[in-house]
Simulated assay, not measured.
Amino acid sequence: MKQKYEIIENENAKLFCKYSGSGPLLVLIHGAMVDSNFYDAAAEVLSQKYTVITYDRRGYSRSTVCEASGFSVSQQARDAASIIKFTGEKQAAVFGASAGGMVALELASQHPELINLLMVHEAPSICLLPSTDDCVAWTQRVQLQIDNGKINKAVAQYLEYTYQNDVRGPKKSESQQQQEIKNMYYFLKEEFYKTLTHKHNYAGIQESGIPAVIGVGELSHESYCARCAFRLAQELNCELIHFPGYHNVAYDLPTDFATMLIGILARYL
Rank of each mutant, 00 (worst) to 15 (best):
residue 121 H to V: 04
residue 121 H to L: 09
residue 122 E to M: 02
residue 122 E to F: 07
residue 122 E to Y: 04
residue 124 P to T: 04
residue 124 P to E: 00
residue 124 P to H: 02
residue 125 S to R: 06
residue 125 S to A: 13
residue 125 S to V: 15
residue 125 S to H: 01
residue 126 I to N: 03
residue 126 I to D: 03
residue 126 I to A: 11
residue 128 L to W: 02
residue 128 L to F: 08
residue 129 L to Y: 03
residue 129 L to S: 15
residue 130 P to M: 07
residue 131 S to Y: 04
residue 132 T to M: 06
residue 132 T to C: 04
residue 132 T to L: 04
residue 133 D to T: 08
residue 133 D to Q: 09
residue 134 D to S: 15
residue 134 D to M: 07
residue 135 C to P: 00
residue 137 A to P: 03
residue 138 W to A: 14
residue 138 W to Q: 07
residue 138 W to Y: 09
residue 138 W to E: 05
residue 138 W to L: 15
residue 139 T to E: 04
residue 142 V to L: 03
residue 142 V to Q: 06
residue 142 V to P: 06
residue 142 V to K: 11
residue 144 L to S: 13
residue 144 L to C: 05
residue 145 Q to P: 00
residue 145 Q to E: 10
residue 146 I to F: 09
residue 146 I to L: 11
residue 146 I to H: 00
residue 146 I to T: 08
residue 148 N to C: 09
residue 148 N to P: 01
residue 148 N to Y: 01
residue 148 N to M: 03
residue 149 G to H: 10
residue 152 N to P: 05
residue 153 K to I: 00
residue 156 A to C: 12
residue 156 A to V: 07
residue 156 A to F: 05
residue 157 Q to M: 15
residue 159 L to K: 13
residue 159 L to Q: 12
residue 160 E to H: 13
residue 161 Y to S: 04
residue 161 Y to W: 06
residue 162 T to L: 07
residue 163 Y to V: 04
residue 163 Y to S: 06
residue 163 Y to I: 07
